[in-house]
Structures are given as C-alpha cells and as structure tokens.
C-alpha cells in the first residue's frame, strides 16, 4: 500500500466491520472478502468525494459502502441467475438442522421471515441485523426517508402477521410431538 492508501484504510477502518457483516449476512462466506475488497476499491477511487477526517463515522461513506456492496451482491446473484435472498433462507433451505439448532432457533421467526418477499426481507434485515435507521436505509435503497419508513412499517406488519401464524403452527407442532412421545 502507498502511504496515501494506508492513510485511507486507517480512516475507513471503523466502517469495515459493518460492511463485512452486511455482506456476510447476504452471500456465501467465500465471497465476502472479495466483495468487501471490491467495495473498498470503489471507495478508494471515489475518495475525493469524501473528507478524510472523520471518515470512519461518516454517514455518507457508510451509505456509500453499503449501497455499493448491495450492487455487488446483486451482481453476484444475477450472475448466478438467482434472486437476491438473505442467508437465513439458505440456512433453512440448504442445511438439515441439527437437534441443537432446532432447540436454539426461533423456528417461527425464521419461517415467517422466509415467507416474506425479498424486498420485505431486505429492509427488515437492514433494520434488525445491520442496525440501520430509516434515514440510513433510505440512502442505501435510494429512496426517501419517508418511503423507507413506510416500507419498513409495512414489512414489520407483514412479519408480525406471518409470525402470528407461525407461532401457532410451531406451538401446534410441539403439542403434537409431545402427544406422540407420550
């Protein structure tokens, strides 16, 4: 790294964890480092748009990183001719859960989340997993804060509805299992 690149990396370092987790929640592990480095490379090319001082706490830079990561993730998924989905769907669909997993997992919330649209999943995950506020989500999605709030409220409503259903199903399933055992 050149001295300028080192200075830039130190300035942006506080945001790397959030970028890394944002990407890791959405793609297979093998792609995380590649996408993060691609995003950092873009940020480096666009560095003239941001002040170096306070870069690690710069909301605009965070939004820039996450938006660019979102594009890169969509690009990866498009190349695979698949839709943008989030990791829990992979976990539930692709892996046989161990008894420990079943015991620990909130099966209802996972099933309810999986039943939502990709758009609902995305905005809920940005809130619950990435810790983004509506104004931050708005920047990443390229919509108004108001629009992001509306989308989030509606997605929350749909998650709540789906959870109500799944809670009943899971409770019924456990009761049935208990009866079978007895």
């Amino acid at each position: 790294m050149t001295p300028e690149q080192l200075q830039f990396s130190q300035a942006i370092r506080p945001l790397l964890t959030r970028l890394d987790r944002f990407v890791a929640a959405r793609v297979d592990g093998q792609h995380v480092a590649d996408i993060c480095s691609d995003v950092i490379a873009v940020a480096w090319q666009k560095r003239s748009r941001f002040a170096l001082d306070g870069l690690g706490e710069d909301e605009s830079m965070l939004a820039f990183l996450l938006t660019t990561a979102r594009f890169q993730i969509k690009n990866l998924e498009r190349k695979k001719q698949v839709a943008y989905r989030l990791q829990p769907v992979l976990q539930k669909a692709g892996a046989v859960p161990s008894p420990e997993d079943d015991a620990l997992a909130d099966i209802a919330v996972t099933a309810a989340f999986a039943a939502l649209t990709a758009a609902d999943q995305e905005i809920l995950a940005m809130t619950a997993w990435d810790g983004l506020t509506p104004p931050q989500i708005a920047k990443v999605l390229g919509v108004t804060t108001n629009n992001a709030s509306v989308k989030l409220n509606r997605a929350r409503g749909r998650l709540r509805e789906a959870l109500s259903l799944q809670d009943v199903i899971v409770a019924s399933s456990k009761n049935s299992t208990a009866k079978d055992i007895n």
């Binding site: 790294m1 050149t2 690149q5 990396s9 370092r13 790397l16 964890t17 890394d20 987790r21 890791a24 929640a25 480092a33 590649d34 993060c36 480095s37 691609d38 995003v39 950092i40 490379a41 480096w44 990791q87 829990p88 976990q91 997992a105 909130d106 919330v109 996972t110 309810a112 989340f113 809920l124 995950a125 809130t127 619950a128 997993w129 929350r156 998650l159 709540r160 959870l163």
Partner: peptide, 26 residues
C-alpha cells in the same frame, strides 16, 4: 418481531475482519 428477527442475525458472532481486505482492494 424485530427483536426476534435480530436474534436470528446469522453474523452476530462473526469475527472481526482483518486488514487483508485493504491489501486486496488496493
């Protein structure tokens, strides 16, 4: 519903990324 979803965060216990990302980026 959000707190329950937050508890399913698949990367909640992810280890911190290393600076290798920067080296690769540059």
């Amino acid at each position: 519903e959000l707190s329950r979803l937050a508890a399913t965060n698949p990367v909640a216990n992810r280890i911190e990324p290393t600076d290798a990302v920067f080296e690769k980026a540059f």
